[in-house]
Amino acid sequence: MGLSVFSHRSSLGVILTVLKARFLIISRYRGSLFLESLLPLVFAAMPILIGVAVAGGDAAAGQNFLANVGTADYKLYMLLGASVFIVVSTMLWIVGFWIRREMEMGTLESIYLSPAKRIHVVSGIASYAFIRSSIAFVAALAVGSLVFGVNPFRGEVYAAVAFLLLGLVPLWGLAFLFGALILKIKEANSVINSLQWVVSFFMGVFFPIAAFPPILRYVALTFPPTWMNQGVRASLLNLSYFFEAWYIHTAVMFVFAAVVPLLGYSIFLSTEKRLKRKEGVGQY
């Protein structure tokens, strides 16, 4: 058996080592974290400025928004949507590109040759994605609040943080699903580019999903980030939760948190097994 000693501690060691290696690698690409923090600002600025242009002024835009959405603070609404979206997007990007890059470098086969369980390796990557997306969220919200002159701490801040954290759990599951997709089709760019828009559309980044026709609304409600986004906004902007009551909203998010990771991981494992029956995981 050589020097391998299997224990819970060594499994935790796998997660922490993968996490550390990711930070070491990104630290050698200077400037990327800074640029990433600016992205949600640009993302949120576009609809905010379009709103002002179309409504004919800040106050008019706020009044129109109040009539349609329930809050006049459309800037914070957009900024929150963009910041939550950046969390979702960063999570999917990091996991998707991680698999693709490991395939290209040949390190994916090296990982598969080791006795490390896939859940520990992917948990290391997901933890890294979680930390990076959290940094991007906080930076975007802080700088965005200064730039657009909004106060993000005026509502139920603790509830918003709780919804954000609860929403991250099913995101791990979605990251597994996304990873399975990249393993299968062996291409990350086109998947990420197309999913980027689909995700932001169904999450209701710039508008309430109540604006959707009924069928699209139900589709949007099956997507966990939509609930995460609405939970954060409802807490901070005093908007209504889906199905009105906060506890129903929370219960649905708990169900997502319990089901989606299991579903995502089992699909990831079955995709991996299918690939090993065919050409192997290293082919791309």
């Binding site: 050589g2 080592t17 490390a116």
Partner: peptide, 8 residues
């Protein structure tokens, strides 16, 4: 890194 993946 690889030593950790091998649970050394």
């Amino acid at each position: 890194y690889f030593g950790a993946l091998y649970h050394v």
